Simulated assay, not measured.
Amino acid sequence: MRVTARMRVSVSKAKKRASQLHLRGQIAALWGKSPDRPKRMRLVGSDAERELKLSKAIRGWAGANLQTGDWVEVIGMQQYNPKKDCWKCRAEVIRPLGQATAPSPATAEASAARANQPAKRSGKSASPAVLVCQKSSCCKRGARDVYQAVTAALQQQGLDEEVEVRATGCMSKCKQGPCIAFKPDKARYLGVTPERIPALVEQHFAPSEAQAELAAEQAAPQA
């Protein structure tokens, strides 16, 4: 049987045919140009991790109702690209999982370990925060290790309740990643390694000497 060009195109389209997506897992990251309308989400299940694009119709709702660490059920569409060997996923419906439908403790523990992300809601851009690019190019250069280093440094310096860590989209410096930014200073750093993080966190968020003295005076018992 002779295979024609038209037949090859038909086979290629068949391999890329979309199918329904139905997942349950924990939100590891939400990001987009605006924290109020996240465009993408990283979902970690017991046996897989997927990056999903949120449909425009649910982005506003997601920004107001979801945060990293939430367990959700996602319904949408998925398409496999054999050339890139990856799945392209789109979330069309997201349902928070209540107590009655929460995953088993074993599933929750396994997914939480893989996600390794703090459960904090995105705030206003002016609030203290460290933005860490989590797009594929930066992740290949160690962005996930940088994210973990930021989280650890904030905890060690007692700043984890005051400063938020956010996974973001592309910062337009892909070849110079990993890329991070500090708010509200609007300082950006390229090619960051985990070893640099403690000093950068201290530089941007450590209280001044005057603030430290004032805090000590307020904490001291009154005579």
Rank of each mutant, 00 (worst) to 15 (best):
A100K: 14
A167F: 00
E92V: 04
L154E: 13
D70Q: 01
P105V: 03
Q157M: 12
I94L: 06
A149P: 01
A106G: 09
V146G: 07
G169A: 10
G98E: 13
Q134G: 05
S136I: 10
R95T: 12
L159N: 05
C89R: 11
Q148P: 09
D85C: 09
Q78Y: 00
K120H: 09
S172F: 07
S137W: 05
T107M: 13
C139N: 11
S111C: 11
S104R: 12
V132R: 07
A129F: 02
Y80I: 11
R166T: 05
E164G: 01
Y147F: 14
K135Y: 09
L66T: 05
W87D: 15
N81A: 10
V72Q: 06
G158F: 03
Q157V: 01
N65M: 00
E161N: 12
S125A: 15
V74R: 02
C133P: 09
C139Q: 13
R144Q: 12
A153E: 09
Q157C: 13
D70Y: 09
G169N: 04
A167L: 02
T151A: 11
Q67S: 11
S172D: 13
G158Q: 05
A62P: 02
A126D: 14
A152W: 04
L159I: 03
N81Y: 08
P128C: 10
D85A: 14
D145P: 02
R144D: 11
D85H: 08
E164H: 05
A100Q: 15
L97H: 11
C89A: 08
K83H: 12
C89L: 12
S172W: 03
V130Y: 02
K140E: 08
E162G: 10
T68D: 08
Q117G: 03
K135H: 08
Q156I: 01
R121L: 08
R114V: 12
G60T: 14
Q157R: 13
A64M: 00
K135V: 07
G63M: 00
T151N: 13
S172T: 03
A64N: 04
K120D: 08
K120N: 07
G158S: 08
C86Y: 06
T107I: 14
T168A: 01
K140Y: 13
M77K: 15
S122A: 08
A62H: 00
R121D: 06
